[in-house]
Simulated assay, not measured.
Amino acid sequence: MADAAQMTLPSSTVAWLTPDPFVAGALTLSLDGVPQSHVSLRDPRHLFYDYVRRMGTAIDLAARPAEPLDVLHLGAGALTLARYVALTRPGSRQLVVEKEEGLVAFVLEHAPLPRSAEIDLVEGDALDALRSLDLPESDWHEGADIVVCDVYAGVSTPAHLISQDFFEAVRAVLAPRGTVLVNVADEPDLGTVRRQIDALRAVFPAVAMIGPAATIDGREAGNVVLVAGGDPAILERMPALAAAGPHPVAWHVIAPVQ
């Protein structure tokens, strides 16, 4: 893809895919002028945004290298992490849920997936999708090793996707040792981060947060990754996750609800 591509989606959102002038073979997806995703088609292992790198490392640490995983992505973007998992863990089963009608088709038209990638794509609301995946006949019922929550409408996550009900629906499809990864973009007061932490603590016994030191300390706006699940090993992996960078980094384990 040599030139930028543009499409007005049915919601009237304008999507752009623009070549990165500094990284050959890389694209930036923007919606209504706001950058949403960065993906390297030449090497999907190259993760550009710091929060995506942290989530990629968390997936790396969740199992032995190259071991296939079942990964559920809530929010598609440019399918950056789905491409990463397909390359680093061949044979992984992946499902991507995206509410923005037409977005995935637009992305795949200009940035196709590798033929070897086993990725299913669904258009719809993330909570509705979770409830359908929790049905007894679904092969995702308590089957996801990783659930990535990166769902935005504009610059914020819809309220029903940061609630306790939402994370209870996530838990219903999560394997007993599975990991939930949540991207939260927030202001220095971390109000949205705290609300999502409260919802996660009500559902999962293991919850931690990690991000740029200036964001975690409340000095700058930025993206925080919340890590949660039912397995205490999730918290044991936090020092290794922090050591992998990007730096400077800060992280905290969140005390469970008593």
Rank of each mutant, 00 (worst) to 15 (best):
S132N: 10
V107C: 12
L181I: 05
D189N: 15
I59T: 10
D231F: 03
G91D: 03
Q6Y: 14
A250I: 03
L47C: 08
I216Y: 04
W140V: 02
A206T: 11
A86S: 15
E187P: 01
Y84A: 07
H110E: 02
G154T: 08
L133V: 03
H73I: 11
V39A: 13
I216T: 09
W251R: 04
P44Y: 04
V224A: 12
W16Y: 10
T8W: 02
F204G: 11
G191A: 14
V249A: 12
E220F: 04
M1Y: 09
G25R: 02
L9C: 08
G178T: 01
L72M: 06
F48K: 13
F48M: 11
A243K: 10
T18W: 05
A206Y: 01
V85L: 07
F167T: 08
S156M: 12
V151S: 02
V97W: 09
D43S: 14
D50C: 00
A5R: 13
I59W: 08
A199W: 09
G91T: 01
L103M: 06
F166M: 12
L127M: 15
A144R: 01
E67D: 10
Q36L: 01
P158R: 03
R194Y: 08
T192S: 15
V14P: 03
L47W: 05
L31Y: 09
D120Y: 01
P212W: 08
H160G: 00
I210F: 02
L241T: 07
A129L: 01
W140M: 05
A66I: 00
A126T: 07
A5M: 11
G25A: 02
P44E: 06
P158H: 03
D50R: 07
Y49S: 13
P112L: 04
E100L: 15
G124M: 11
V52I: 15
E137M: 01
P35L: 04
S30W: 01
S30N: 04
P158S: 09
G25F: 01
V203Y: 11
F166A: 11
P68C: 07
R64Q: 15
A185H: 13
R131K: 10
P256Q: 12
A244D: 14
G56T: 05
R177T: 13
D32C: 08
T28P: 00
V71G: 14
P112R: 04
L9P: 08
H252K: 10
Q36K: 13
L41P: 06
W251N: 05
I234A: 03
P176N: 09
R54M: 12
V96S: 01
D125G: 03
S163D: 02
G33L: 13
H46P: 00
